[in-house]
Design a protein around this nucleic acid. Structure first.
Length: 660
RNA sequence: GCCUGGGUAGCUCAGUCGGUAGAGCAACGCAUUCGUAAUGCGUAGGUCAGGAGUUCGAAUCUCCUCCCAGGCUCCA
């Protein structure tokens, strides 16, 4: 018998008897590794531990604490769930069940069109634990297409996948089988077999640190014209500790949910009387908005923008010309009929209005680039199931601008714009970005191939030159042009779409907007759409979650609260407050009718940056005690002047408009 | 839009088998005057999301409508 040699990730080589499996390799390396091993990566391809190794292969053993290991665990757990469901609902059809971030899901169709309820999750979990306790092996087999169809004759979704693969399949379908001509399956018991490429853990006993999270409807193949299946989401980890840590993280994320903080901090609400996705801002939220908007306005003044204002509704014809009614009608509120059958629409975007301002008189090349800026409120009809807090609303205000420039100016304009955006976002404390380039939406776009090509190339170059990570979003552009969006990662690593920059050759053409060039001929300007906050509402939501409600001092609705120790200190407290008020600090006094501890607690819960406590010593010496947010060691005996200086400095450094 | 779960005092929530509405916090009043995360007592507060039905009787059971959350696609 001859030997085979394999290459390990550390560059070392190992000789094994021919026919050795990945598990044999793990055992040869060490007992501990053999015990931990879940699967193997052979020449870059994930494989079962039972796979025999080809000579010369590069082999890495996959263990539970790696991303790949977790993926295998999650995928195997999904199979266990499918088996549990088929045990509890004989005749259930199972569709697909992949590993996803932090967990897995599986889609089912239950006999008689039954639906899972929340209570079913417990029963399914119990059945899964029984399967795990049975220590069932995952056994791989391979079949021809015909044999596969025969094996899964009573599983219509599996049959559809096998047929799709046989006829030249998508990547997605291939994930379910071994290749276009080989159908691979994994069986745990004679009673349960699933179509799957694998790999899987050797036995169900290797699983167990999981929790079923929720049930949901999901359309077969994500297509709302197809039947809706019953999806169960679960999370699975390598250990109880990792599972607990994940669940804990979910609790933490919920604590910084902007909807919850918006309620707790009295920032905004969604009165049902007004309608879904339509927010009202309370005084504190209104103050935050004002600060954000003022800062942005100031930035735009310095950035060479001109301020414009436009109405919220316009005649049908405007949106015919712009193309919105043709391409964006689904996102618009229905028209209101006025006068003699004239239809008016609420505006979903500001661009047509800004074009009309451009067109209001003859323009010269000497004026370009022209930059029109507006906090423009727009209304979009979002489907009832998709509105979400301040991040997906039906009425919002965009910090919107449209730049009209020549083709030659386009590149430079985009490059400086990108810098402008990133600087602004950094001033708000976001500094981890990547860019996403969204290209032509298939079958839903105006303009020629050549124009799209040019626009996409230009954006892509500007994005690359900015030196940030660039991700391609195929077909994600607007109907009139491609876009770059700036994605920001927040304090707990989630990403949010913020600013968008879109190139548009179409709109100027549709409106016949032009300027007189140096050659005394008419030319069409290029139009750049851009919103830096995206929407003021969404931006505020992202900031609230990023800071967990602890807004930097310059953005805090109330920056300082002054508390007298006893009520005979209230007069001094008011004196301190009015001094700060002269510095334009947002300051309140709470008089001493409650115990000091109680008033401090209240101010802490309101996340006010500075609580000033003043008592006998302070009245005598003109000082104050500072209890800063996030600190539990108050500072005593600071002079008022000292505090004013510190506060002014902090606010200036955090990018207040005065700092420009 | 579709699937699952939910909507009870301003907020967070309890409410058993269908028998006439509860708590804590907040608010208000009185007392308390206090040096860094909850002073005490009291008062008031409800179309149980809205509508219809079943019933002697509905927060509770049925149907319809509205709204919220999660998912259907990204993202976490």
């Amino acid at each position: 018998m001859s030997d085979l040699e394999v290459l390990l990730p550390d560059g070392s080589r190992r000789v094994l008897p021919e026919g050795s499996t990945a598990l044999d390799l793990a055992s040869a390396i060490g007992k501990r590794l053999a015990k931990d091993a879940l699967a193997a990566e052979v020449n870059g391809q994930l494989a079962d531990l039972s796979a025999t190794l080809p000579a010369g292969a590069t082999v890495a053993i996959v263990t539970p604490t790696s991303d790949k290991g977790r993926e295998v665990l999650r995928h195997s757990t999904a199979h266990v769930m499918a088996q549990a469901v088929t045990r509890l609902w004989p005749g259930a059809h199972y569709a697909i069940g992949p590993a996803i971030r932090d967990g897995f899901y599986y889609d089912f169709e239950l006999p008689g069109g039954d639906h899972f309820s929340d209570d079913d999750l417990e029963r399914i979990e119990a059945e899964m634990r029984a399967i795990i306790a049975e220590d069932q092996p995952f056994t791989r087999s391979e079949y021809s297409i015909e044999e596969g169809l025969e094996l899964f004759f009573d599983q219509p979704f599996k049959v559809e996948i096998i047929n799709a693969v046989a006829q030249g399949a998508s990547e997605e379908d291939l994930a379910e089988v071994a290749s276009a001509s080989v159908v691979s399956t994994y069986s745990n018991t004679p009673a349960f077999r699933d179509l799957c490429r694998g790999p899987h853990v050797p036995s169900t006993a290797r699983l167990g640190h999981f929790k079923l999270m929720r049930v949901a409807g999901a359309y077969w193949r994500g297509d709302e014209r197809r039947p809706q299946l019953q999806r169960i989401y679960g999370t699975a980890w390598e250990s109880e500790a990792a599972l607990a840590a994940h669940l804990e993280q979910l609790v933490e994320a919920e604590k910084r949910d902007h909807r919850r903080l918006g309620q707790e901090l009295d920032l905004f609400s969604f009165p049902t009387e007004i309608g879904p996705g339509l927010a009202v801002f309370h005084p504190k939220g209104g103050t935050m908005r004002r600060i954000m908007e003022d800062y942005s306005r100031n930035r735009h003044v310095h950035g060479g923008y001109q301020f414009v204002n436009t109405p919220h509704i316009a005649k049908e014809e405007l949106f015919q010309t712009s193309g919105h009614l043709q391409w964006f009608a689904d996102g618009m509120y229905p028209p209101m009929e006025l006068d003699d059958g004239q239809n008016y629409y609420l505006k979903p975007m500001n661009c047509p209005f800004h074009v009309l301002i451009f067109k209001s008189r003859q323009r010269s090349y000497r004026e370009l680039p022209l930059r029109f800026f507006e906090f423009g409120s727009v209304y979009r009809y979002e489907k009832s199931g998709v509105v979400q807090g301040l991040t997906r609303v039906r009425g919002m205000t965009q910090d919107d601008a449209h730049i009209f420039c020549t083709r030659e100016q386009m590149s430079d304009e985009l490059a400086s714009l990108l810098k402008f955006v990133l600087d602004l976002l950094r001033d708000f404390g976001l500094n981890d970005f990547y860019l996403e380039l969204s290209t032509r939406p298939e079958g839903k776009a105006v303009g020629s191939d050549r124009e799209w090509q040019e626009a996409e190339t230009t954006l892509s170059k500007v994005a690359t030159d900015a030196g940030l990570e660039l991700v391609l979003d195929e077909g994600g552009g607007a109907f009139y042009g491609p876009k770059i969006s700036v994605q920001a990662r927040d304090a707990i690593g989630r990403t949010h779409q913020m600013s968008t920059i879109q190139l548009d050759f179409q709109t100027p053409q549709r409106f016949d907007a032009n300027y007189i060039g140096s050659d005394n001929a008419r030319h069409q300007p290029i139009m750049i759409h851009r919103a830096l906050f995206g929407s003021v509402e969404r931006f505020m939501a992202v900031l609230i979650e990023h800071y967990a409600g602890n807004m930097p001092t310059w953005l805090s609705p109330e920056q300082v609260r002054v508390l007298g120790v006893r009520n005979d200190h209230d007069a001094y407290a008011l004196e301190v407050a009015s001094a700060l008020h002269l510095d334009e600090v947002r300051v309140e006094v709470e008089e001493a009718s409650e115990p000091l501890g109680s008033r401090i607690r209240k101010a802490k819960m309101e996340k006010i940056p500075y609580i000033l406590v003043v008592g006998d010593d302070d009245v005598a010496n003109g000082t104050l005690g500072i209890n800063a947010r996030g600190s539990n060691a108050p500072e005593r005996g600071v002079t008022l002047e000292e505090f004013r200086g510190r506060l002014a400095k902090e606010i200036a450094e955090h990018g207040s408009p005065e700092a420009l």
